[in-house]
């Protein structure tokens, strides 16, 4: 049976009519992208989670109050809310963001990935730390594409449009990012977990 994938606008329409399942689909479809955007600005996992919730609460209030403008697109709209939430957070804290995403670069200069506080396996923890380090060390253009594709779940075409390059350039940057990471891993003789890499 073919599954029909509803677009955002259809899901919003269903949500307006009362479908909580439609809202759940919207949240799950965009949560990582929105969270990553906030996270790259505030650089604190817990603050980012609070702001993500506030962002969606604002969206729910607007939609359920019948104030959502259906002419606009859902994702850019909620991304703007998220961006404003993150900027407001800095205003309240009297600090200023060093990273501005998408609309205003400079991009991704000092990414601090979330530490995993409940990690118990020391070896795994070390591997995670290494991966974070390798991502951070990538050249800016490669890091940008890798983060947009892998963590923000943007398609290569969306990345190409957002960064003003061709899709082939975006793909090439992704390829070099992966090659560079692999080279460094090989150099460091990273011991792969054989269960993760069968054959």
């Amino acid at each position: 049976m073919n599954k029909i994938k509803l677009d955002d606008s259809q899901l919003v329409s269903q949500y307006i009519k009362g479908s909580e399942l439609a809202f759940e689909k919207l949240v799950n479809r965009h949560k990582n992208k929105i969270f990553t955007k906030i996270y790259l600005i505030v650089k604190d996992r817990y603050v980012a989670e609070d702001l993500l919730q506030e962002t969606f609460i604002k969206a729910v209030n607007t939609i359920k109050a019948g104030k959502y403008n259906e002419e606009g697109k859902f994702l850019p709209w909620i991304m703007r809310i998220a961006n404003n939430m993150a900027i407001d957070h800095f205003r309240k804290e009297k600090r200023y963001p060093t990273i501005v995403m998408e609309d205003g670069s400079p991009l991704l200069n000092n990414i601090k990935f979330a530490e995993e506080p409940f990690e118990t396996d020391q070896e795994r923890k070390e591997t995670h730390k290494l991966i974070r380090k390798l991502v951070k060390e990538l050249p800016e253009s490669q890091k940008q594409v890798l983060i947009m594709r892998h963590y923000m779940k943007m398609s290569f075409q969306e990345i190409a449009d957002a960064t003003g390059v061709s899709i082939n350039t975006a793909l090439g940057r992704m390829r070099y990012a992966l090659i560079n990471m692999k080279k460094k891993m090989d150099k460091l003789n990273v011991a792969y977990d054989k269960n993760l890499y069968p054959g």
Partner: peptide, 25 residues
């Protein structure tokens, strides 16, 4: 393999945050 490795660094919200959002709605 690299994709799997990149998945290990978790840049996604917790389930709790998502549950809170859905419950609010």
């Amino acid at each position: 393999n690299m994709k799997d490795d990149l998945d290990k660094i978790d840049v996604q919200p917790s389930n709790k945050a998502i549950t809170n959002i859905l419950n609010y709605s």
